[in-house]
Amino acid sequence: MSVASASRVPFEPWKDPQAKPYIRIVNVTKTFGDFVAVDNISLDIYQREFFSLLGPSGCGKTTLLRMLAGFERPTSGRIELDGVDMSAVPPYERPVNMMFQSYALFPHMTVEDNIAFGLRQDGVPKAERNKRVEEMLGLVQLSKFGKRKPHQLSGGQRQRVALARSLIKKPKMLLLDEPLGALDKKLREQTQFELMNIQEQVGITFVIVTHDQEEAMTVSSRIAVMNHGRIAQVATPTELYEFPNSRYVAEFIGDVNMFEGRLTEAQPDHVLIHSAEADAYIYVDRSTSAAPGATVWVAVRPEKIDVGLTPPDDPTYNCVTGKVWDIGYLGNLTIYHVRLANGKKVTAAVANRTRLRDRPITWDDQVYFTWMPDSAVVLVS
Rank of each mutant, 00 (worst) to 15 (best):
I45T: 04
A299E: 04
G146H: 15
M86D: 11
V367S: 11
Q199G: 08
D82T: 07
V298L: 05
M98P: 04
K185R: 11
V377I: 05
R262L: 10
D358I: 07
T334Q: 14
A116I: 03
P17H: 00
S52Y: 07
G293Y: 00
Y336E: 05
Q152P: 00
A19I: 01
R48S: 12
S375Q: 14
P360Y: 12
I204W: 00
Y22H: 14
P74K: 09
N352A: 01
A294Y: 00
L119W: 01
S381P: 08
R301A: 10
G123M: 01
R158I: 08
P360S: 07
T295N: 09
M86G: 11
P312R: 09
P125S: 01
A4N: 06
L43E: 04
E80S: 09
Y368C: 13
F50R: 00
Y317A: 11
A69F: 03
R188I: 08
L175F: 04
E214N: 08
V300P: 01
A351N: 13
T354P: 08
G70M: 12
D212P: 02
A299W: 04
D177S: 15
T347Q: 11
E251R: 06
Y329F: 15
E49H: 04
P13Q: 02
E189L: 13
T218L: 03
G83E: 09
T321M: 13
G254L: 00
E260S: 09
F51A: 02
V161Q: 08
D285P: 01
A276N: 15
